[in-house]
Design a protein around this nucleic acid. Structure first.
Lengths: 348, 348
DNA sequence: AGCTTCCGGCGAACCGGTTCGACGAAGCCG
DNA sequence: CGGCTTCGTCGAACCGGTTCGCCGGAAGCT
């Protein structure tokens, strides 16, 4: 079931079969039909490896995501799904690579062995050796998120700074004065994760502008950590009346912590942050949040990558997204909290 | 940067370089070092397509999952992650394929063009033309879930029947008499999804055994559908005191529906079902559930597939898993529901 | 009629590896 | 010292496609 076999049965040469399939040279209608009939009978499909070898393209793109030691979030799932579907629309397959860093074995497989034509990188860090490496080799890649030096690179990113600022302003407008920030886990912050850093920057900046009393926390990517984090927040400052979070996976735990502490959302406590819409709707009350457009980001990343693959000399393009905050049910006007000590309730 | 270049610079033939790398024939220590030095200098890695073409194996496995029209669930995410990592441990890459049915374009790419050595199929249906096709071709594949005729096939599955039965018995033991079953969406049930059917079977059977009054529902894979479904349940029979669900994505909505209806969990209403542990812990109160061991299933599926690839004539193996119910906080003893009409409270 | 042009098809080379058979040199044996 | 094995290496063929150069014949032109 290879091209030679087809050629033999159709009584033509291998090259004629190839041209009949690719259409890169004209083939008479008659032989074309003869060939097509044989192909249909045998259910022939050209071998992908051979094709890749011959024309130097694998028709596959790599999707590099962090290994699961870090728990996956719903947003990542939506993102993976949309990348796969968008890629399929352009006739690309998607190869998954659980890679952390540049020197990674899996990363080397993907690039060094030329398994993929291009790559999409998730979970970018401000200083990212993977990105540096790819830029140095001029390897076609698009990152989800931007490093500290995003110019001259291809990426689609979320303006975490602006989004978190918007969250803070939203809370401040509602009268909240003591706000906590729940970030991604500390090891990710230390590793320089873009969202964690820029989100924190936005929080700090907006809080300063509005003269708020704030505390920031790192929190593990799971519900129990979220619950523990919330306990810490209320322990550190019982007068806290709101929080902003980037940590989707901890959200359920944060809510539980509030329930356990007897704080009703949104009457006693407001919660907001940056979370994919589908997941913001799973909690009760539904989360007022800047909805991460994961699906759109996946699509855009693929479009950018395909463009870069088709035009190797095109100049870098990128998309910086800043979706608006969707008002749902988890934020409300601030009320002084009464039952605890620390009588710093109604300032302003 | 191909093997010929390495050979030239090392002053040996291409075959010698190949043997030095593969170790399939002895190579003198001296030339081996010479070759290795050149390779290290140039950062050479053999081209995957060429290798695949030559030895007929791509070192890639395909992961076939349903396209996202159906929303992804957390369980699927965990599963994908664990498959990728387990595969990496065996030096396999994972190619994602968003395929629905047998005739699917993407499915044909994967198999017909020999992009992968084997495949793992998610979201199996009782009558599954994909599986039939693969069995007919004796293509190395492992399914997650089993068809109506699972003998002689390779799979790892969950005993949904037994799990749902256990849930029902758990509720019956707590005194619940009127129970609802919240299944996957109707189109999936109609399409013959295994989990939906076997789960329903288990529910019906156990309910009959215990003489319970039950109703079954199909519910969309998202929070709003869950909420709507719960409203319907309480509307159809306000005396319902518990539900069993397979629908992880709707869980948040079910909880919200209960909250809106003023039913406290677990005091007024018990909730249980089959849900991955990590996600069962995100809701408040934490869900008492048969924990889907998604991570373990992914690992087992890869192990089975690798075994099948290494021993093409091995006889079919499978794993049927039936994890115990993890008691958390969402179930409790039944109490007659008072405030609504329909005074069918304490029958037994 | 003689010339060019165009069309359809063929053979060979190539992509970058792997693997088989052969062969020279060295080592071992009697 | 001659014959046999063993070791290390090489050249060639092969995997299954694509693509380039070429060629024979029919058609078009003057």
């Amino acid at each position: 079931m290879n091209i030679g076999e087809i050629a033999k049965r159709a009584g033509v040469s291998r090259s004629t079969v190839s041209y009949a399939l690719s259409g890169k040279r004209s083939v008479s209608e008659e032989t074309r039909r003869k060939i097509q009939r044989v192909i249909d009978e045998l259910g022939y499909r050209p071998n992908a490896s051979a094709r890749a070898l011959a024309n130097g393209r694998t028709s596959t793109i790599g999707l590099v995501f962090p290994p699961a030691g870090t728990h996956y979030t719903g947003m990542q799932l939506d993102f993976i799904g949309s990348v796969v579907e968008a890629a399929a629309a352009y006739d690309y397959d998607v190869l998954l690579s659980p890679s952390g860093v540049d020197s990674d074995r899996s990363f080397q497989r993907l690039l060094g062995e030329r398994r993929v034509d291009g790559a999409i990188l998730m979970e970018i860090r401000l200083q990212d050796d993977r990105v540096d490496h790819l830029v140095a080799e001029n390897f076609p890649a698009v990152s989800i998120g931007r490093t500290a030096h995003p110019d001259g690179d291809w990426w689609v990113g979320l303006d975490h700074t602006a989004l978190v600022e918007a969250c803070v302003h939203h809370l401040a407008d509602l009268g909240h004065r003591r706000i906590a920030f729940v970030n991604r886990p500390e090891h990710l912050l230390r590793a320089g994760y873009e969202s964690a850093h820029r989100g924190l920057d936005g929080f700090t900046k907006a809080a300063a502008e509005r003269g708020l009393t704030v505390r920031t926390y790192c929190c593990g990517d799971d519900a129990p950590s979220g619950q523990a984090c919330l306990e810490r927040i209320l322990h550190d400052d019982p007068a806290t009346t709101a929080l902003v979070t980037l940590n989707e996976a901890a959200l359920g735990g944060l809510y539980r912590g509030l329930a356990v502490a007897g704080r009703h959302v949104p009457r006693d406590f407001s919660v907001t942050g940056v979370v994919a819409g589908r997941w913001a709707e799973t909690v009760t009350p539904q989360l007022t949040a800047a909805d991460v457009p994961a699906e759109q980001m996946g699509r855009l990343a693929v479009e950018l990558l395909v463009e870069r693959l088709d035009h190797p000399d095109a100049s870098p393009r990128h998309h910086l997204l800043a979706p608006p905050i969707s008002l749902r049910a988890s934020t409300g006007p601030a009320h002084a909290h009464r039952d605890s000590g620390s009588g710093s309730g109604s300032d302003d």
